[in-house]
Design a binder for these strands. Structure first.
Lengths: 185, 185
DNA sequence: TATTGTTATACTCTATAACTATA
DNA sequence: TATAGTTATAGAGTATAACAATA
């Protein structure tokens, strides 16, 4: 029903997320744009996450990296970067912050001395477990809106978006992007 | 199946999104965190969006604002801010950029002279329609992975995440967040 | 007194490019 | 020649705080 190619007028009107539709705006084609809904959901979850994690000061991505290093001792930056679709310099900065807070450490690999194996410190392990506990409660506030089957289907659909070989678009001949855009906001 | 409260070891291992699992990492509890999958999907869509919109240099949020102003001539910043869960200063900066590119203009409201009504310029209307066309093609690369029924269900689930009164968590007694975190990354 | 817009400021995230060292 | 990490730099996005104009 949604999406036969063209984005045109459909006159949908949707109340805002916060107050109960004081000034309902016509959302136009936004209602049928998957990326829009995805972004709105992301923002909503982030806000609760932020309130939940205020004491720990760990961004979602920082938590992700701690969890990855915790589960995969000795993992190197380049693999984390690839998994999370980050630039290696971005990954560097991220790891720098976690290292500065003494949550993880770099050790030069004995096998390939270009590589720095990453390990959690004791403090990192502690903060990771605290974060896991807080996030579990935070998650439950959202996942409780779904049955187990619904949640599994939901996650499967999300994975269908981001697990797809090299990405969806065909040839990528453009190569160089003329202007720089930074974040998925 | 996913989520009985505690986040513990489950040993799931998932290949990275790009190359076909060269270094599969143990994702630990990440596999059952809805916010993680949401973020990964968001990043994947953003990357295709970016490649698609390289020529126009419009971020998703900029496009959203243009569409809102186009559909709701005279809408004011504060309403946009509320709908998109943005700070009013952030909204200001966003509108500034669009105004500097001559895509929209501010006119002092005749009814309430504190307010500035927003309108698309001719150029803004042109660029908006170009963006709609590009985004339609971009969207199709993702939505084509789902049947119409699946897509409707998917979007309904996303809306269930972000349309929920004041947000999910109970009392919000904390009020002031001790540290600042900025973006949902 | 409350609301809307505004400015100033600062900090984080991110990417680009160039560099070092290892392989 | 290619890879991993690193540094320097720059730009966008965001929020906080203060302020002005108006209601």
């Amino acid at each position: 029903m949604a999406g036969d190619g063209k984005l045109e007028d459909d006159g949908h009107s949707v109340p805002g997320p916060g107050t109960a539709g004081k000034h309902p705006l016509d959302m136009g084609c936004l209602t049928e744009i998957l990326g829009f809904h995805l972004r709105m959901a992301n923002v909503a979850i982030f806000q609760d996450y932020q309130a939940t994690m205020a004491g720990l000061s760990l961004t979602p991505k920082q938590f992700t990296v701690l969890e990855l290093v915790g589960r995969n001792p000795g993992v190197v930056q380049i693999d984390i970067a690839e998994l999370l679709s980050m630039d290696k310099a971005t990954t560097m900065a991220l790891v720098d912050r976690l290292e500065a807070r003494n949550f993880l450490e770099r050790r030069t690999s004995t096998i390939d001395r270009r590589r720095k194996d990453l390990f959690l410190t004791g403090e990192g392990q502690t903060v990771l477990q605290e974060a896991r506990d807080l996030i579990a409660a935070h998650e439950k506030r959202f996942t409780s809106r779904f049955s187990a089957a619904e949640l599994d289907a939901f996650i499967a659909q999300l994975r269908r978006i981001y697990l797809s070989g090299e990405g969806p678009h065909g040839d990528q001949e453009a190569g160089n992007l003329p202007e720089r855009r930074t974040r998925p906001d």
